[in-house]
Amino acid sequence: MSIEEVENEIIEEFEFFGEDWEAKYEHLIDLGKNLPLIDAALKTEERIIQGCQSRVWLNAEQKEGRIVFTADSDAIITKGMVALMVRVLSNQTPEDIIKANMSFVDKIGLKEHLSPTRANGLVSMINQMKKEALAKLAKS
């Protein structure tokens, strides 16, 4: 699936909750809980993206011209958000990853989590994902 197709899928999934933020957050929490996002051995110091409060671990691997991301967070809501980011950007080409504007986050009403307060480390994580893609392009 292309980035856009995954984004649309997520938007559709969240439309179901309408204005019911509690249901939406319960879903986000479930996303965080259900997904095994990263191999425990990869949760090392070098892979930490330090937010002011919650921490995010990000690992990038290359597979047939695409980048596969795995990630994790110690806060469950952040982890739910991380799950969404990984779902959209993982297994895509570096070109597409760099172009992605993640506007789906606004459309599903969770934009506040990408505010620049650096509390949760999510903005830094997206930057890091794009850097990985850039690095891959530079090498090829």
Binding site: S54, A75, I76, I77, T78
Partner: peptide
């Protein structure tokens, strides 16, 4: 068992 960040985020809601 919960991260303070999650508790604060939901209380804000």
């Amino acid at each position: 068992g919960q991260h303070p960040f999650d508790v604060g985020t939901l209380l804000d809601k």
